[in-house]
Write a protein that binds this DNA or RNA. Structure first.
Length: 455
RNA sequence: GUGGUUGUAGCUCAGCUGGUUAGAGCAUCAGAUUGUGGUUCUGAGGGUCGCCGGUUCGAACCCGGUCAGCCACCCCA
């Protein structure tokens, strides 16, 4: 029998890891709820039609397709072979595959809203935490199965939603102890205005894709890429001037005004950014207006967000999002605008690990362990244990009579903070001995008092 | 999808220019220790050297293929 394996790019999560991940996810969900967001879950698989063409050409290639059943039916052999020929030419065909694993949470959400918009009360605020799948080649921080953690508001144009979402980022990162995080914002309208000035709205995608790489490849390479993408030298120098806008938020706003204020779209973008920064200026939010922030996704139309790990941690974005004006339009229901954010759970995990920000008690599952020291002893211990469980205290009785040494080690391995000894002496005196492992402190408590004892 | 790199015990790794029975530390189990863990000491178990094939008298080592991990690119979370 060959050793079992798991599919490429997938992971098992052991108890210790699950506890840490749960801590992160619980924190995020709690904050979502605090802001009035409601939970939603959608199926692991969607109809292929729902997903295809929504993520661009590259995205389509990375969708995990599910093979239809019954392809081996001899009666259909000829038809199946013909259909498969089409697959070899790069076309998708319902004869071979008509379902796929979901690629993100946004498109399934849009599909859900399009299907149910008559029943929903707007604005509809939902959060969703589920795995998604991509047929990408795995590498550092990238997996074929990973969790996304999204919150979106649909059915409202109000910028107050952006304010709320920015506050959610702040609240979550603060609760996780990531005080040095940075929330960068920009507006797609600013970028659109820049494209206008550079002589063509059709250049928007080329410009955003190139600018998005600034952090990684530097100014010179970005300029090269812009030229490659068909921009002339005067257009490139306008973009260079734009990328050179730096300083405090007010300074950046005035810099932007000088460059693009006579564009109507540009003015709208500046208004959005100044509204957001003024609304949030009073708090401790680390809000930074960043003209170089672009984000690859094409469907964004207004404010865009990107959350960065504290400086010094070699980790880029730990969250992102933005406003889209017409997501459900793809599914035949126009005019439902929305704005959403996403948390990168795996990356946040790595950052918390690196900065040692997981709480010390994150591993504590079982709170106390009763030692098993004989038949009569364990019978009494079990009775006491059941009383404590009634109170909601998580406890265990060691599964068999064993030496102290073994039972201690079991408690240590499971990070159980307290052990309770009920042995011959304790039975005689109707008391038990409670020991706190971390400190070695020990105390004697009567069987009747144990019920109310605080651990 | 393209390219690079690694694969030896549960884990981290050593293993000389190819040479007889493949090693260490940690972990596990047992004992020192029959009511007090973390330390120490003693001993034991555990490997088809990722898998398949080739070269050779002889392969963990060389060659080809394959699978998996890691890294970079494309793209993205």
């Amino acid at each position: 029998m060959a050793k079992p394996t798991i599919p490429q790019g997938t992971r098992d999560f052991g108890p210790e890891v699950v506890r840490k991940r749960t801590y992160i996810l619980h924190t995020i969900k709690t904050v979502f709820e605090l802001y009035g967001f409601q939970p939603l879950e959608t199926p692991a698989m969607e109809n292929l039609d729902t997903l295809m063409g929504k993520y661009g050409e590259e995205g389509d290639k990375l969708i995990f397709k599910i093979l239809n059943n019954g392809l081996d039916n001899p009666e259909k052999e000829k038809q199946v072979r013909e259909e498969f020929e089409k697959v070899l030419q790069g076309k998708n065909t319902k004869g071979i595959t008509e379902r796929a694993l979901k690629y993100d949470l946004t498109i399934p959400f849009a599909r859900f809203v399009a299907m149910n918009h008559q029943q929903l009360h707007f604005p509809f605020k939902r959060y969703q935490v589920q795995p998604v799948w991509r047929a990408d080649r795995p590498q550092k921080g990238r997996y074929r199965e990973f969790y996304q953690c999204d919150a979106d508001v649909v059915g409202s144009q109000s910028l107050l939603n952006e304010v709320e979402l920015a506050s959610i980022y702040h609240e979550v990162f603060t609760r996780l102890g990531l005080n040095g995080y940075e929330l960068r914002i920009n507006s797609r309208n600013i970028l659109a205005a820049l494209a206008e000035i550079c002589g063509g709205a059709d250049k928007l995608t080329d410009i955003t894709v190139a600018i998005d790489k600034l952090d990684k490849i530097g100014l010179e390479k970005v300029k090269e890429e812009l030229v490659q993408r068909g921009l002339n030298s005067s257009q490139v120098s306008i973009i260079e001037e734009y990328l050179g806008i730096r300083g405090s938020n007010p300074e950046i706003l005035s810099g932007l005004s000088k460059l693009i204020d006579n564009s109507k779209t540009g003015k709208k973008g500046i208004d959005e950014l100044s509204y957001l920064s003024s609304q949030l200026a009073s708090g401790q939010l680390h809000l930074v207006i960043d003209p170089t922030l672009a984000r690859g996704l094409n469907y964004y139309t207004g404010i865009i967000f990107e959350a960065k790990a504290p400086a010094g941690v070699k980790m880029g974005s730990i969250g992102g999002g933005g406003r889209y004006d017409d997501l459900t339009g793809l599914f035949g229901v126009p005019n439902i605008p929305g704005v959403g954010i996403s948390f990168g759970v795996d990356r946040i995990y790595d950052v918390l690990e690196e900065l040692q920000l997981f709480p010390a008690d994150v591993h504590v599952g079982t709170q106390l362990l009763f030692f098993n020291l004989g038949e009569a002893e364990s019978k009494k211990a079990f009775e006491l244990l059941q009383q404590l469980r009634q109170r909601g205290i998580r406890g265990e009785l060691y599964h068999e009579v064993a030496k102290f040494d073994k039972q201690f080690k079991y408690a240590e391995k499971k990070h159980i903070p307290f052990i309770v000894i009920v042995g011959e002496k304790e039975l005689a005196t109707q008391t038990c001995t409670i020991k706190e492992l971390a400190t070695g402190r020990q105390q004697s408590v009567s069987f009747t008092d144990l019920k109310h004892h605080n651990f």
